[in-house]
Amino acid sequence: MSLWRLEWLRLRRTWRGVGLLAVFVFFGLLGPLTARYIQEIIERFGGTEGVQVTFPPPVPADGMIQYLSNAQQIGLLAVIGVAAGALSFDATADIAIFLRTRVSSTARLVLTRTAVYAAAAVVAFVAGAAVAWYETWALIGLVPADRFLIGTLFGALYYVFVVAMVALAAGLVRGSLGTMVLAFAFVVVPQVTVGLVSTARPWLPGHLSSALAPLAQGTAEAGDFVRATVLTLAVIALALMAAIRLLDRREV
């Protein structure tokens, strides 16, 4: 059995893979529904006596925006939680000893797990986006396929970045919970601090997470995300190098 198969079995037998997929597909189904029927939902369940709330007629981009708003919150937490459970290499010392005394290098261990969990996050995000795109087409109208594909690609890269942040956090702390909290901070803090500066925002990895929305609306082009893509790729590489070095030096 290879390390790749080990991680595949972990995803399958612990239901982490299915769980992750379910979260994103659920929001993929829910997003366009909400966008299409928001007026009816408010009238039926949220109406206030004497107050008439009127929404503009939904446009196709609204389906994708609704999907992204959910994926960026619950989906992000799910990715961090699932990845932290697997990437906290030394959370259980005796399990860590089994692998650490047998693998030829820590890099092999870190890169395999990061790759598998990044792939799982990407598959889940893309599956949810595909469901949202199809349902948006059925209920509201078509988001151009090329714009959908490019936006989804940027979103997928964002989730690779998120998993790389989890790997870095796992290099700094041992426990799964600590890894989760630290990874969440790595992902969110730059967004809510540096991201407030309008000139810095286009550089941040978080800029990629919602790329699908302006691309679907037609208010942005792929070139608007090049800076964030370059910086995100660099951060991913640096985070993985740091994680390998930290885990290599850690005593068990």
Binding site: L6, L9, R10, R13, T14, T92, D94, I95, I97, F98
Partner: peptide, 8 residues
């Protein structure tokens, strides 16, 4: 106290 992934 050897431990292994419980699902293996």
């Amino acid at each position: 106290t050897p431990e292994f992934e419980p699902w293996l």
